[in-house]
């Protein structure tokens, strides 16, 4: 099972990827407290889904091929689970 730090690194890696399409004013910080979704977040709906799929791919490649962040449960938990980098890391740990 991946550690929380490994999961956070995977999230940071995905942040690097999506930042390319975020514009200089909307860059997401690689910080546990960085807001991903909701008030103060910098991702629009397309950006959030792209980001979620990037994280999902990385977790799958790290030895969890059936892991998903786009099922009904994850979508229902979006507001809390995807709020910050740290909350997303915790959520992924809980789902693995």
């Amino acid at each position: 099972m991946a550690s929380k730090q490994q999961i956070t690194d995977a999230i940071y890696n995905a942040i690097d990827e999506v930042n390319a399409a975020q514009g200089s004013e909307n860059q997401i910080a690689k910080d546990p407290k960085a807001i991903l979704f909701g008030q103060g977040g910098k991702l629009d709906s397309l950006g959030l889904l792209t980001f979620v799929l990037q994280v999902e791919q990385r977790i799958q490649s790290a030895g969890h091929p059936s892991f998903t962040l786009t099922d009904e449960k994850a979508m229902a938990d979006t507001a809390t689970a995807f709020r910050t980098v740290d909350s997303l890391s915790d959520y992924i740990v809980s789902r693995l």
Partner: peptide
């Protein structure tokens, strides 16, 4: 999944 959920056919890469 990206295509079905967002109609984005291609990835950022």
């Amino acid at each position: 999944k990206l295509w079905l959920m967002t109609k984005a056919l291609y990835s950022l890469e």
